[in-house]
Amino acid sequence: MTDSKVSRARGADKRRRLTAAAARVLHEQGVERTTLADIAGAADVPVGNVYYYFKTKDELVQAALGEHAARLADLTGGLDRLPDPRDRLKGLVEAWMSGRDLAARYGCPTGTLAVEVGKRADGTLDAEAGRVIRLLLAWVERQFRELDLPDPGGLAVTLVAAYQGMSLLANALRDPEIMTREGARLVRWLDSLAPDASAS
């Protein structure tokens, strides 16, 4: 491997580490309390190097949102291997439930970030946060559509809103069991849904 290829590979590795660290630290501390030095430390990258990859904290927030989108794509891509859309949806709920301790401590990674950037006056990042949530809504809607259920878009909003609500309550009350109980309720709800016979 040539020196330039080694240098590019190292640079790509640093950028990946900074992006992953930004997603984690911003989730744990919030945008306002997080410094570039916090993210550099979590990524084990000298703070001066951060500016080579990200000029501002907003660029790191955008990278963190990209990381959330990539994680969502990994999760839904894995669930897409299941043949039944109802099982895919239940798998999504189970994934949410498996993150109950993190949700109780910090809330939903994307949802909390969306709320925080949505309150800023400049409005530059809220569209990006909304894009990640729309990706989730679109995937969930596709599953409901495959199940031939009426109003798949509305059902998608119901399911994602339930997740956001249970994450918020688990965080506010510091009670991960809210995720467990409400997740089980969502699984039962998914099992109860049947195609609209009047539509056929």
Rank of each mutant, 00 (worst) to 15 (best):
A64Y: 09
A199R: 13
M179Y: 04
S198I: 04
G118Y: 07
R15T: 13
A161E: 09
A42H: 03
A69E: 09
S7W: 11
N49C: 05
R145P: 01
Y52G: 11
G130N: 11
V93H: 05
K55F: 05
G30T: 04
T180I: 10
L149N: 02
T124Y: 03
A170V: 10
R16Y: 02
S98E: 07
Q143I: 12
R81E: 13
G154D: 01
S7C: 09
I39Y: 01
D87K: 03
S4V: 15
R33Q: 14
E94T: 03
L149K: 05
A23D: 00
P150E: 11
V50S: 08
S200D: 08
R174E: 08
L155S: 00
A121L: 14
L75S: 14
M97Q: 15
V6K: 09
M1A: 06
D191Y: 07
A69M: 13
G107K: 01
A162L: 14
L26D: 04
R10A: 06
A114P: 01
V140I: 10
K5T: 08
G111S: 09
F144I: 13
R134W: 10
E146G: 07
E177L: 14
R88E: 00
T180L: 15
T19M: 05
A170W: 02
A199K: 06
G99W: 11
R105C: 02
K57C: 02
P46Y: 10
N49E: 15
G48V: 00
V25E: 05
D122M: 12
M97P: 05
W96I: 12
A114V: 01
D74C: 06
G77V: 12
L82A: 05
P85M: 04
D151V: 08
A73F: 08
V47Y: 04
A104N: 07
A156L: 09
L75N: 15
Y51G: 10
E67C: 01
T56F: 12
Y52R: 04
I178P: 00
M179A: 12
W139I: 07
G11T: 13
V187W: 07
D126M: 09
V93W: 10
T180V: 12
D151L: 09
F54W: 00
D101W: 14
P195G: 05
L193F: 01
R24C: 04
Y106G: 11
H27M: 11
D38T: 02
G41T: 12
A127P: 13
L82N: 05
D196W: 07
L137A: 08
V6H: 07
D175L: 08
I178E: 00
L149R: 06
V47D: 07
